Amino acid sequence: MSAIDLLRQLGDVLDGHRWDDLPALLHPAFRGDYVHTGEQFGRDDFVRLNVEYPGFQRFRWEDLVDGGDRAAGRALVTGAADGQEQRFGVATFITVRDGLIAELTEVWTDVEQTPPSDRRPV
Rank of each mutant, 00 (worst) to 15 (best):
H27I: 03
T92A: 09
V107Y: 14
H27D: 13
G79M: 11
L14D: 01
Q86L: 15
H27S: 04
M1W: 00
V111I: 10
L104I: 04
M1P: 04
G68R: 12
T92K: 01
G79H: 04
D21S: 12
I94L: 05
Q86G: 04
G55Q: 01
G38D: 04
A75S: 15
R70G: 05
D12F: 03
L6M: 00
R31K: 13
I94Q: 02
F56V: 03
S117C: 04
V122W: 10
Q9D: 09
Y53V: 13
P54R: 01
G73E: 10
D82T: 06
E62L: 15
P116G: 07
G83R: 10
D21Y: 03
R43L: 06
D118P: 02
A3T: 02
H27W: 01
S117A: 15
R87L: 14
A24R: 13
P54N: 02
V65I: 15
T109A: 08
A102L: 00
E106M: 12
S2K: 06
L100M: 13
E103H: 13
E62V: 09
E62Y: 03
V47Q: 01
D20I: 10
E112F: 13
E62W: 06
T78A: 10
R87F: 09
R60A: 09
R70F: 12
D33Q: 08
P121V: 12
V77G: 09
G67T: 04
T37H: 02
T105Q: 08
L104T: 00
G67L: 15
A91F: 04
V47P: 00
D66F: 01
